[in-house]
Design a protein around this nucleic acid. Structure first.
Lengths: 233, 233
DNA sequence: ACCTGAACACCGTTCAAGT
DNA sequence: ACCTGAACACCGTTCAAGT
């Protein structure tokens, strides 16, 4: 017998054959434990006990690898509990997607550059679109609105999360730097900012996000799309 | 006389003393000609005829360098022509900022992660806030709305621009990949997407941006902020 | 006191050469 | 036919050692 299990050389617990699925699974483990910035081709190859060149047989480049990881993780978040009001379910879905991106800021950043479009991302799209339709939103507006809602959540996660510069606690969030600048704005060059500094920096992140989603929903349902739009690209 | 001009060794047209300003100016030249991805510490140092270590005397790290470049470029875009209606001026300002970020996608991406907060960014904030107030928007909503409008423009520029992978024309925009995925969605797993695929992919980028700004403005003016928000963090 | 050469610790990607 | 060692062409950042 020469099955894998009977082999005596077992340097690693087991070294399965390379495959796209296996590479992605191993990458997720690294992302979870050490952050996206550590999930490099070289690092993943090392974890899989091979050289980086081998990964290129299954994955075109680093961007594609990260996109595959994000789609896989989106699959774990799709929480759709029926029978509660649409608005509540929408908040839950956006919050779920948001916490995922908040937990992995690097993925939020990559989602902003490379639109998620794997099977799980499409399901998320479908879920949000369905809820907007359930709310009675006119179909064209709902269709364009999905992008706005998901894009907002992505952007806020990319912005408000820490840069994760290893252990540099002193760094602080970038938004604090902006708030400080707004607070100390010069009344001569920035009169409006100076006059409304308190309002500009007020509110917690959560309060602002809730308000922004209100703003988007109200705007989406109330704003007609132009009568003649070029269709399909 | 030993003034700089009388020196005979003049390997370069002139090699002024290093300074933060000079480093930023040289970096802008590289960004303009070759894109942000080429504006590395090493590359900038090379252009300034020195080693990378020397830059660290004036600039803390690459992120700070790129932020300084963005603020400098924002300074060139602040077009405020008075005497035309506020909405027109707002569109112009957002379009101006948007084209800047569209022209330098790398900067749009870095603006999403590191909030611009230099003097010129604050002036831009002030301009947009002033226009919202001029429109009669309640001050608290206007203050929170500025973030939303500028953030949207930044996100759209980061998303819709090409990855600029040197000369790889085949790459195509990421949004096309999403549109293809939406168009070929399976009616079984994504019924709403399948039913409204046309609407999901309709419209040009410009049409969608105009609609989105309408959505945001309508939402911002109509949505009250919560009565009690924690102030100033 | 100020500046920087050289090193440290990494990257992504390709391709010639092996099995 | 499939896989990969080794190389190419880069990075950011630090610090010991020079002037």
């Amino acid at each position: 017998m020469t099955t894998a299990s009977s082999k005596s050389r077992r340097e690693r617990p087991s070294k399965p054959a390379l495959s796209r699925e296996w590479i992605v699974a191993e990458t997720i483990k690294i992302v979870r434990d050490e952050g996206l910035e550590k999930a490099t081709m070289r690092r993943v190859a090392q974890a899989l006990d091979t050289g980086p060149a081998s990964l290129y047989v299954y994955i075109a480049n680093t961007t594609e690898l990260h996109a595959a990881v994000l789609d896989e993780l989106i699959g774990t978040v799709d929480l759709d509990r029926g029978s509660i009001p649409w608005r509540r379910r929408l908040d839950d879905v956006l919050a779920g997607y948001g916490s995922l991106l908040f937990a992995y800021p690097g993925l939020a950043r990559s989602a902003l550059v490379a639109y998620p479009h794997g099977p799980n991302a499409i399901r998320l799209y479908d879920l949000v679109l369905g809820l907007l339709l359930e709310a009675g939103t006119e179909a064209d507006r709902a269709a364009w609105g999905v992008d706005l809602l998901l894009g907002y959540v992505t952007a806020i996660a990319a912005e408000h999360s820490e840069p994760v510069t290893d252990l540099d606690i002193t760094a602080g969030r970038e938004i604090d730097a902006l708030f400080n600048a707004l607070r100390s704005a010069d009344a001569a060059t920035a009169p409006h900012v100076a006059a409304h500094a308190d309002a500009l920096v007020s509110g917690t992140g959560g309060e602002r996000v809730r308000w922004a989603i209100d703003v988007l929903l109200r705007g989406i349902t109330a704003t007609p799309i132009p009568p003649e739009v070029s269709d399909g690209r």
